[in-house]
Amino acid sequence: MTYPVNLKYTETHEYAKIEGNKAYFGITHYAQDQLGDIVFVELPEVGREIKAGEIFATVESVKAVSDCYAPLSGKVVEVNENINDSPDLLNKDPHGEGWICAVEISDPSEVNKLMDVAAYEKHAAEGGGHH
């Protein structure tokens, strides 16, 4: 598996796709593979202020629940309603159609704390501890 170069990653296997002052959050291919069939995603409310490291969504497989930690701080401006009907988008296309929510970035300096693709690929290959 190769990971997109235009994403920024967390140790806990979330990503942020940054477009201007907006960032799309989701979980990585590695995370969805560990979880197996994803059957439900609890989405954040639009308008909620989230701090980096806070739980912004919960992803459920048949027998596991996994929290998703926000890569960046910001206000939720959009959620991916498509995954209500098709939670398996997170399995099929985690870095694309399977995004979870979008935020308006409140502290652009936090971006520097995230991993780039090379660092993340190494992290995932090493078994991706800390989740």
């Binding site: 439900f40 459920e60 497989s61 048949v62 027998k63 596991a64 629940v65």
Partner: peptide
């Protein structure tokens, strides 16, 4: 929908 239950979600 077993993820609601104690054997999976424990304290939550």
């Amino acid at each position: 929908l077993q993820t609601r239950e104690q054997h999976i979600r424990r304290e939550r």
